[in-house]
Design a protein around this nucleic acid. Structure first.
Ligand SMILES: [Mn+2]
Ligand SMILES: [Mn+2]
Ligand SMILES: [Zn+2]
Ligand SMILES: [Zn+2]
Lengths: 144, 144
DNA sequence: ATTAATTATGATAACGATTATCAGTTTCAA
DNA sequence: TTGAAACTGATAATCGTTATCATAATTAAT
């Protein structure tokens, strides 16, 4: 079975926090790791239920929160619809091109844009702590 | 009374759409125009009620939708909490520095950042249609 | 293995923001 | 003045998410 590193991170996190291990959490973690998509809790729930139909949506939400706490996942709040969750471990900061036709996410990072944001903030005497850049349009596949 | 241009735009829009005029809509419009803040429907409702306590929140939502339709306002979806509404008429495209301490919005626009986004999209063979750049941090006042 | 303390679970209620519904009111053109 | 159409506020419904709660599973100590 793959994802040994990630599972180790989660197990340590669970142990250090005085939590207990459960089959549901393991199923949710592995299902999350197996897809590289930017999933909502509902979408992940649907995938997990294929393996373990008894898992409830509440446990998916609870587990996603744990995954974010231990930095295996992070939230992506697009501003409309449900929060999406993406892999965080081993993924550096990036922004997103989001296709309005197929909904796919393309991960991008431009050091120049990042630098110009710093310059912009400095000009306003603003201490920049983070940012969110979402770019919407039509992806290569959907253009044809 | 000020805001003649904006009122004219709204009146024409209402007439052209076969809608009717009402005191509530006028109160909501003028209250919205009077503040330059980025307000939620609830915040605007609170302000409107000072002038006209009978106005309901549903009418505020309905009127905000009309203001967006006629381009006097536009939605700002930050991704957490309520949608905010900002002035759109006479305001060119801009992005935001958002202070995590006081919640104030600083409007900014950097043509270089805009251009680099286009370059980034082109590199991915992506037809860019729009973007949202939110920068979070601490504003000048709150740094002290 | 047994126990007992503690955490985890799924169902479901509650929540906050927003939209839909509806009965009564207002607008406005004829 | 009148009557069709739009408008209103109250409130129910919706959606994504969190809180509650009774029951079940885990764990460490016996
Ligand atoms: Mn991503
Ligand atoms: Mn603005
Ligand atoms: Zn696409
Ligand atoms: Zn501030």
């Amino acid at each position: 079975m793959a994802f040994e590193e990630e599972q180790k991170i989660f197990d340590s996190f669970v142990r250090d926090k005085g939590l207990k291990h459960s089959g549901q959490r393991k199923d949710i973690l592995l299902t999350f790791l197996k897809t590289e998509k930017h999933l909502t809790a509902d979408e992940l729930h649907a995938l997990v239920k294929k393996k373990n139909p008894a898992v409830g949506i509440a446990t998916v939400y609870r587990t996603l929160r744990l995954l974010c706490e231990c930095r295996l996942s992070s939230e992506l709040r697009l501003g409309n619809g449900a929060v999406r969750y993406e892999h965080f471990y081993g993924h550096e900061h990036h922004d997103h091109l989001i296709c309005v036709k197929c909904g796919n996410f393309i991960e991008v990072m431009d050091p120049e844009i990042e630098k110009l944001q710093e310059r912009l903030a400095k000009k306003e005497d603003f201490r920049l702590q983070g940012h969110k850049l979402l770019m919407y349009g039509v992806c290569r596949k959907c253009k044809q």
